[in-house]
Computed example of a mutant assay.
Amino acid sequence: MTYRTIKLVKRPETKITEDIFDIVSQDIPQPKADQVLIKMTHLSLDPAMRGWVSADEDSYIPPVVLGDTMRASGLGEVVASNNSQFPVGTRVMGLLGLTEYAISDGSNINPIPKEIPAEAILSVIALPGITSYHGLFEVLKLSSSDAGKTLAVTAAAGSVGSLVGQMAKNLGLKVVGVAGSTEKCQWLTDTLGFDATLNYKDADFAEQLASATPEGIDFFFENTGGAAQGPIFNRMNAHGRIAVCGLIAEYQKEQPDPGPSWLNIIKKRLMIQGFTMPDHFHRIGEYSQALGGMLGKGELQYRAHVIEGIESATTGINLLFDGNNQGKLIVKL
């Protein structure tokens, strides 16, 4: 029997194009000593994948080697096992790649309860959730003592931004979300309860932001760069804190846009910190448990954008960069 896996065969020039990938059929392997064979059921498509396909060696994680399976996190079930920690039938999650089957020695997978829906796992408990949690509580250092202060979040309708806003609201903060469509803004306001939502594509975005933040902005969770960054930066209050999680508006440009002047960093005494989750993977268990608790209490809502079949991943990934995904982007196998 065979299975399909997506190999990275060349680097993109700017945008991710279908031809940088090759869908290859291979014989299903059998696990060796201490290994398990996992049949994947769901794969995660994330903005970080744009960096993973580049040739940049000077980053937080090495690029995917040409000819290797494309890196991705996913969810699956152990179907053959020589590892007592992961018997047949165990549901697992890990960075296993864009593939229908994967071999693991157990070091890169975690067991996941079967009663939690797959979409909830990949939307909340997996990378989006742990990223949101770390950025809010370890980088921005939010607590209930910050109730009443203002947080702005870009890509607010995305898998990370929507969780950031909800967790901040649960602490009593005023949350201003920035998204790229009327539908996304309405979802954030009507369903998630954000205090204000703005479309960065509006010509008067800066004026709308000033109106929505009459007392300025205390915390900024940055996911995009681009048009929203400067106006938000200029609204920061003294001693404000900024967590730089992503710059999705810049990833597929030949030359990134210039950022705002550093003058306000001095004048406003701002703290700005970039972060990536591979530095903190040792805390996945801790963060996932906390997120699972929030989810179980009904404190977090999510929505998933599901596409079907492994072949859909090679083009579907661009939904992230076009802004056409409606929630966490997942491939169902």
Rank of each mutant, 00 (worst) to 15 (best):
D105E: 10
S84N: 12
I109M: 02
P113W: 03
V64C: 14
D105M: 08
L98N: 09
P87V: 06
A102Y: 01
G67D: 08
F86R: 11
G106A: 12
P117Y: 14
S107K: 13
I109E: 00
G76A: 06
D105L: 08
I61S: 15
L96H: 03
Y60N: 15
V88M: 04
G94R: 09
E100C: 06
M70N: 04
V64H: 01
T69W: 02
M70D: 03
I116S: 13
S107H: 08
P62R: 14
R71M: 09
S59M: 11
R91M: 04
V79R: 01
I61L: 15
P63W: 00
M93I: 07
A72Y: 03
L98A: 12
K114L: 08
V64W: 00
A102F: 02
G94I: 05
I109V: 14
G74H: 09
T90A: 08
L75K: 06
P117A: 13
P117I: 13
G106K: 13
V78G: 01
R91V: 02
P62A: 14
P62F: 15
V78N: 01
V88S: 01
L98Y: 11
P111D: 12
I103A: 05
G67V: 04
V64E: 04
Q85T: 03
G94V: 06
L95C: 11
K114W: 02
E77Y: 02
I103T: 08
D105T: 12
G94A: 10
P111L: 10
I103G: 03
L98S: 11
A72N: 08
I112H: 03
G106M: 12
D105I: 04
M93W: 05
N82K: 12
D58A: 11
P62L: 13
D105Q: 09
Y101M: 12
T99G: 06
E115R: 15
E115F: 15
I116V: 15
M70F: 01
S73Y: 07
E77P: 00
S73G: 12
E77Q: 10
D58M: 09
V65I: 14
I112F: 00
G97H: 02
P62D: 13
D58L: 08
I112T: 07
S107T: 13
D58Q: 13
T90F: 00
L96M: 15
V65L: 12
V78S: 01
L98K: 10
Y101A: 07
S107W: 00
T69I: 12
V79W: 00
V64I: 12
L66A: 04
P63D: 06
F86N: 11
R91Q: 09
P117F: 14
R71A: 07
I61W: 15
G97S: 11
I112P: 01
D58K: 14
M93C: 02
F86V: 07
T69D: 09
T99P: 05
T99E: 05
V79L: 01
G89I: 07
